[in-house]
Every structure is written in structure tokens, then in C-alpha cells.
Simulated scan of single mutants.
Amino acid sequence: MPDSRLTRQIAAALRDERERRELTQRRLADLAGLSQGTVARIERGDRVPSLPVVERLFAALGQQLRLAVEPLDSHLDAALAGLAGRPLAERLDELGLDRTLDALGELPYVLTGATAALLQGVPLPVAAVEVAVRWRDAARLTAFLEREYGLRWNARWEEWGGLRLEPEEPGEHRWQTRQGELRARMCDELPEPVEVRHGERSYRVEPLIQVELTDRRAADLLRRHRQRLGAAPAARGPAR
């Protein structure tokens, strides 16, 4: 699969415009004189489309792309700056963290990724509650997902549903539940956590130094956050 930011942006823009007009992929393909498979691959980001093909697709939607340039990844700096000014309690409530953890009940877990970084004082974007879960607890995770009417992310069709809930089944470990989105990193043993306290609650989180080793996306954002602050590259300790 192409690892291109522009390819992903074109895919998302095309999908959003098509859905906004309530067109199927097949109907858009007919309008643009392409195959439905071509449209599907472009929307999934599996194919780097040529500029003439992109122009044909958006023209079929009555739209055209506009080219602009900006400093490299400046949108990330703006996003990090905006998140830094928001209260942590507000972001945790928006994420539905406590609701999700209460619903997990006695399932053993450790918070990981951007969720763990956020709880340790780093204002990263967090789209889902991220946890590490042992493989031997997979059945308990599945039971939670069934209770919460979970739907699994289908990367092939870029939509929720159509896949079995069980972590053992092939597919990304992402589920949409009544409490919000949950992402799991399945492992043989849980990472050694540190305890972080906010308000009246304590959280078991993966230390930042481990987050940087296990989550490439979070690690990149952590480095960018430190560069913005002019901080040394050493990992910060947990906020208490």
C-alpha cells in the first residue's frame, strides 16, 4: 500500500465528496469512465492515481482540486498547539476514557500509545482509547465487545462491520463500541506500567519511553512536541 500523505488526503477527499452526493463507487466510476475497482482502490489508498484520473473523478463530482503549498507538516504544529491549551479533564471526557475503562471491568489491560502519552502530560491527538491486552485474555475482550455492541474496523472497505469481533481473527484490532472507539495491542505479557493519577482516579499506563518504542505514530508526534518546546530528547516522567 502506498505510504503517501497526499494519497491518503486524495482518498479521503474523494470518498467524502462521493458520500456527500450519495453516490455509490460504481455510479461515480460510470460518470468518470473508470472501473468500480479503480475507484475502490483509490479511496482505500491502495493506488497512487495519476493527475488526469484524479481530475476526471472530481470533475464527475462537479469539483476540482486546488494546489497549495505549506511548511512541511505545519498542520501538526497547529494541532499540537491547539491541544496544549485544552484542559486534560475535558479531553479525557471527550475521549470517553473513564466510561470505557469502567465497561472493561476486570479485564487486565495497560493504557498505551497516544492515550498513555496524554495521561503523562503530552498533548497529542487521541482518536481512540488504546490498550495493551494479553492474548490469553482475548476471550474476555471479545465478551466486552459483545456486551458493548462492538463493530470491528474493516480496512478493506474502510467501514465498521463485516468482520468477526474476536482478536484472533485477521484484521486490525480496532472496534467501535457504545463507549467510543477502542484499539488494542495484543501481546503475550502486559508492559510494565507506571501509575498516573488525575482527579480521583489512577490509571495504569505504559511509560513514555516504551510508547516511543512500540508506537511509531505516537513517537513521531512526541519528537515533534519536544522540538516545539525546545526540550531535550530524553523521555519525560509521568505526571502525577
Rank of each mutant, 00 (worst) to 15 (best):
L6W: 06
I10T: 10
A12V: 11
A12F: 06
A13E: 12
R18C: 09
E19L: 11
R21L: 13
E22L: 14
E22R: 15
T24G: 03
R26G: 11
R27W: 01
A29W: 12
A29L: 13
G45A: 10
V48W: 10
P49W: 01
P49I: 06
S50F: 01
A60L: 10
L61W: 03
L61I: 04
Q63S: 09
R66S: 13
A68H: 10
P71F: 13
L72E: 14
S74Y: 11
D77Q: 02
A79F: 01
A79R: 07
A81V: 10
G82A: 03
G85H: 10
R86P: 04
R86H: 04
P87Y: 15
D93K: 11
L95C: 08
G96H: 11
G96T: 14
R99I: 14
L101H: 05
L101P: 04
A103C: 12
E106L: 07
P108T: 15
Y109V: 11
L111H: 07
A114D: 09
A116L: 02
A117N: 09
L119D: 05
G121A: 15
P123L: 09
P123N: 10
L124W: 04
P125G: 13
V126N: 03
V126Y: 01
A128L: 15
E130V: 15
E130D: 09
V131Y: 12
V131R: 03
A132Q: 05
R134D: 07
R136A: 14
T142M: 00
F144S: 01
E146D: 01
Y149D: 12
Y149V: 14
G150Y: 01
N154L: 03
R156L: 08
W157P: 03
E158F: 05
E158I: 14
W160A: 03
G162E: 08
L165G: 10
E166I: 00
P167T: 05
E169S: 12
E169L: 08
G171H: 00
E172T: 01
H173K: 12
G180C: 05
R185W: 07
D188H: 01
L190N: 04
P193A: 06
V194K: 06
V194E: 06
H198R: 13
Y203H: 05
V211N: 08
L213D: 10
R216Y: 10
A218W: 06
D220Y: 04
L221K: 10
H225A: 01
Q227D: 11
R228D: 06
P233M: 12
A235L: 01
P238Y: 08
A239W: 02
A239K: 05
